[in-house]
């Protein structure tokens, strides 16, 4: 696979580390129930189709990226810095 890093351009997937789904939001540990945190830490969907997921460009710019990838074909629809996404959502 190749991932087009917004900072570094198209790079081989070997430069990146996969984490998992991008959308689960970390609950506030002081307010959340244990069940909510268990859900955040362990439970993930396994979709056949578009999947928003986190990749870390460890052998490049160290950016955490949100990659939208079709799990059936590996076609990548978009790549954006995780940081920008969160900032955009807050604004």
């Amino acid at each position: 696979m190749r991932i087009t890093c917004p900072h570094c351009g198209a790079r081989d997937a070997q430069e990146f580390t996969y984490l998992g789904a991008a959308d689960p939001q970390r609950p506030d540990g002081m307010a959340a129930t244990e069940a909510a945190m268990v859900d955040y830490v362990y439970l993930r969907d396994n979709p056949a189709g578009p999947h928003r997921e986190l990749w870390y460009h460890g052998a490049g710019c160290h950016a955490w990226l949100v990659v939208t990838r079709d799990t059936r074909t590996h076609a990548i629809a978009s790549v954006e810095p995780a940081k920008a996404r969160k900032a955009g959502a807050a604004a």
């Binding site: 984490l19 970390r26 986190l54 870390y56 950016a63 955490w64 995780a82 940081k83 969160k86």
Partner: peptide
Amino acid sequence: LEFCHQVLWPE
């Protein structure tokens, strides 16, 4: 730490 900063608390 990069994860914590960029994904959890970019603010």
